[in-house]
Design a protein around this nucleic acid. Structure first.
Length: 279
DNA sequence: CAATATACCTGGATGC
DNA sequence: TGCATCCAGGTATATT
């Protein structure tokens, strides 16, 4: 579910509710997520500690405590992280419950359990953060993301441009929804081998990427099935989709029918007229 | 190194 | 109504 915009919306939503709040109790479900939930580390490094701030790197949320420890959360496909009143009933698929000293509670609910919870103790936090993100790609809003950067990175690759955009080791945070929308905005066919792209193509991709991600963040993210922000509200960017899940509808630019295909196992949508194949 | 397949899970939509 | 099948926002690993 959550790509960069959704994770960023959750981050911004959590911040005012968490900053300055102290964890007074830790509870977990008996299930593992992608990895076993580190109950012991939660108890030792998060319980009794106070939230300082919340950062995001790629699709990971970094909840930083005043003692220097970091609670790292990935939402997987169905993760919902929210601050709720302390008396809220337990829901199926609630996997992490942190009581706060403000009659509220931080909860992670994740039905498919593709999410991740990690704890980096203060003494190793810097080292662990550096090594964990060592192979993570550049942030879309990082000024270091330039046409030269992308051209250098891709000029020898035959990888389809859509796969490249979704490869988190090259560019962080772009998933299937936004890869489709970005390529439509940049007028590039999703299957175009990366090395076919010229510098002006990359320039359009950078502009489109930042524009679409920014608009999606401002719309509160995209809610397809079940994405909710930290306050339990849906996003609205799904109403702005121009190609994603729009097969058979008219292209908003040229009225040609939007086509659906499978690329690298993922549903892929494009306008064959605005995004012509290159050979 | 790159493309593909598989695995991890639940639940909603669809079709019979 | 019940049951089978397919599909979904992600990522890590194994296999060609």
């Amino acid at each position: 579910m959550p790509e960069l915009p959704e994770v960023e919306v959750v981050r911004r939503g959590l911040l005012p509710y968490l900053s300055g709040k102290t964890v007074t109790a830790v509870a977990t479900s008996k299930h593992r997520l992608r990895h076993p939930v580190p109950v012991d580390l939660l108890t030792r490094h998060i319980h009794g500690q106070t939230f300082l701030t919340v950062h995001r790197r790629a699709k990971y949320l970094l909840l930083r405590m005043t003692n220097g420890a970091v609670l790292v959360i990935h939402l997987g496909m169905t993760g919902k992280l929210s601050v709720l009143p302390l008396s809220t009933a337990f829901h199926k698929h609630d996997h992490l419950l942190l009581s706060l000293d403000s009659d509220s509670e931080l909860r992670l609910n994740d039905s498919r359990r593709f999410g991740t919870i990690m704890v980096w103790p203060a003494s190793e936090a810097l080292t662990l953060e550096r090594s964990f993100f060592a192979k993570t790609g550049i942030e879309p809003f990082d000024p270091g993301l330039t046409t030269d950067h992308l051209y250098t990175l891709s000029c020898k690759r035959v990888l389809p441009i859509k796969s490249l955009l979704m490869n988190g080791q090259l560019i962080a945070g772009i998933g299937n929804i936004y890869a489709n929308e970005i390529l439509f905005a940049a007028r590039i066919h999703p299957e175009t081998p990366a090395r076919f792209l010229h510098r002006n193509d990359w320039q359009r991709i950078i502009v489109a990427t930042r524009q679409i991600l920014q608009e999606a963040i401002e719309a509160g993210g995209s809610t397809i099935g079940d994405f909710l922000n930290a306050s339990g509200h849906p996003g609205y960017f799904q109403f702005h989709f121009k190609v994603y899940r729009q097969e058979g509808t008219a292209c908003p630019i040229c009225a040609h029918s939007i086509v659906k295909m499978t690329l690298a196992g993922r549903a892929t949508y494009f306008c064959p007229s605005c995004q012509p194949a290159r050979t």
